[in-house]
Design a protein around this nucleic acid. Structure first.
Length: 469
RNA sequence: GGCGCCAUCGUCUAGAGGACUAGGACAGGUGGUUCUCAGCCAUCAGACCGGGGUUCGAAUCCCCGUGGCGCUACCA
């Protein structure tokens, strides 16, 4: 039987910041591609830049991936633990004549010095001289000798891209501190880890010819490539901090659901042929394919993300919604364990009114807080007339007498009052809403009365009556 | 500057030469449901970057422009 090739993809973040949306999408696509084909997905941390890497970011990236449900196979690889491997391969390239030591000083910040490398003649140093310098204290790097031939990249979504090698100069593969550069380490790792498909951002396209040359020089098998276009902010610039929320952590902490983020991200640069919008993880695993990946950069639309999250909140079980609500109450230190049943009723009543869990807090403050502030405009519109106050006095008495405080019974009681007074329902409902919630928008008034409870309701009505006198 | 990628409604996209009167989703408008708001339902408006080819026929293929983005480090 023919040996089946196992698909292996990887996600290779550098721990120099939180997991951002672009990285999360790259990870997601790689993960989907591997999982769909029962392949393997590997996590590799590219932490060769010790100055910028930090454990704080590493932990946060891992936490974010776990939150999203993107799981990886085997151990987590760290490039910082593999520096000897890179060194070994760099030496190999030296001995095969594909690389050479360079003793030139590092290029300065200034663009002007671009010519510098052309003046570098280290490649022509006689071997005796090289030996001598190698053993001296002069800092040295290893440069790859770029072959004079064009390089073709076959990208699975962009097809063939050709690069002329004369636009590429001999680049550093091993820095003077003995650590491999990105372009070198990535090739060694991907080859050694038998990665079959490299799915990454298209900011790496320009790097790819260098990597391809290294594959060839080291006689490694070239993997398949898929370059994903960038995620941009609303100003069409690459998404970054100044566009606001860009880290997965932000979404996690602000009441978004992982499945909603996954769903939204999946659609940012990929689609099904029928443009299906709501896709569960199972749907994605079934339907994901390279064919649906689009080449143009995509602007992250916070509005649509919010809508998507709302969709998932509405589909959520009430128990789960309540638990998440309670988590926020705990965070705000206003949780009362005796009120779980009440919290559940609140959550149920607001389920269709929120787009993030966090929105529950401001939307239910009139229930959670002892007292309320009445908005001036609302009061002016609904609590100003003498008649209204008289009506509220009647309402107060009816409510005070009510023994059954279910919303159904409250509705019956108040509808009776409305009939008795021969007024329109809204003449009671609107002022009552303002008196009880402080605003003109809330869930159904009878549910509000029920959830508030007799004590708070009477107190708030009394306050409004007093206020008018 | 050089090299590269990309180009359909405001946004995400469907579309792989005739099925396009260019479809869906978000956002927006209007109407309905209703005690308000939200939700839900219905409905409207809204795009093929420009110019040349190729072809009987182009959103789709080719070329040139233009625009956006990326890379051009001893960052990744």
């Amino acid at each position: 039987m023919e040996k089946k090739i196992v698909i292996r993809t990887r996600f290779a973040p550098s721990p120099t910041g939180y997991l951002h949306l672009g990285g999360a999408r790259t990870a997601l696509y790689s993960w989907l591609y591997a999982r769909k084909q029962h392949g393997e997905f590997i996590l590799r941390i590219e932490d060769t830049d010790a100055k910028r890497s930090s454990p704080k970011y590493l932990n946060s990236i891992i936490e974010s991936l776990e939150w999203l449900g993107i799981n990886w196979d085997g151990e987590v690889y760290f490039q910082s633990k593999r520096i000897e491997i890179y060194k070994e391969y760099a030496k190999k390239l030296i001995s095969s004549g594909r690389a050479y030591y360079c003793f030139c000083p590092a290029k300065g910040e200034e663009r002007k010095e671009e010519k510098e490398l052309e003046n570098c003649s280290c490649i022509n140093l006689p071997s005796s001289k090289t030996k001598e310098l190698e053993n001296s204290n002069i800092p040295k790097v290893i440069r790859f000798k770029v072959p004079k031939e064009s390089v073709k990249l076959y990208d699975l979504v962009r097809e063939e891209i050709t690069f002329q090698s004369d636009t590429i100069s001999d680049f550093v593969i091993l820095k003077s501190d003995g650590i491999a550069t990105y372009n070198f380490a990535v090739v060694i790792d991907d080859a050694l880890m038998k990665i079959t498909h490299i799915i990454r951002g298209d900011d790496h396209i320009s790097n790819t010819p260098r990597q391809l040359m290294l594959y060839k020089a080291l006689d490694f098998k070239i993997p398949k490539y898929v370059h994903l276009s960038m995620i941009l902010g609303s100003d069409r610039k690459r998404l970054s901090k100044r566009h606001g929320a860009t880290s997965v952590t932000y979404f996690k902490e602000n009441g978004y659901l992982p499945q909603a983020l996954i769903n939204y991200l999946s659609l940012l640069g990929w689609s099904t042929s029928d443009s299906q919008q709501i896709l569960s993880k199972e749907d994605l695993l079934n339907k994901f394919s390279l064919k649906g990946i689009s080449k143009n950069p995509a602007i992250f639309d916070y509005d649509k993300m919010l809508w998507m999250n709302g969709q998932y909140i509405r589909k959520m079980g009430i128990k789960e919604l309540t638990n998440r609500f309670i988590d926020y109450l705990k965070k705000e230190k206003i949780y009362l364990s005796s009120k779980d049943k009440w919290y559940q009723e609140i959550a149920a009543l607001h389920q269709s009114r929120i787009r993030t869990i966090r929105e529950l807090l401001p939307q239910t403050s009139y229930l959670l807080n002892k007292d309320i502030e009445i908005e001036e405009d609302a009061a002016n519109s609904y609590l100003n007339s003498k008649k209204t106050i008289e009506i509220l006095k009647e309402v107060r008495e009816f409510i005070a007498l009510a023994s059954d405080f279910s919303s159904n019974n409250l509705e019956e009681v108040l509808r009776n009052l409305i009939a008795k007074l021969k007024i329109e329902a809204k003449e009671i409902i609107h002022p009552l809403r303002v008196a009880l919630t402080g605003t003109t928008a809330s869930p159904g008034i009878f549910e509000v009365i029920h959830l508030l409870g007799k004590e708070k309701v009477l107190r708030r009505i009394d306050k409004v009556i007093q206020r008018s006198e």
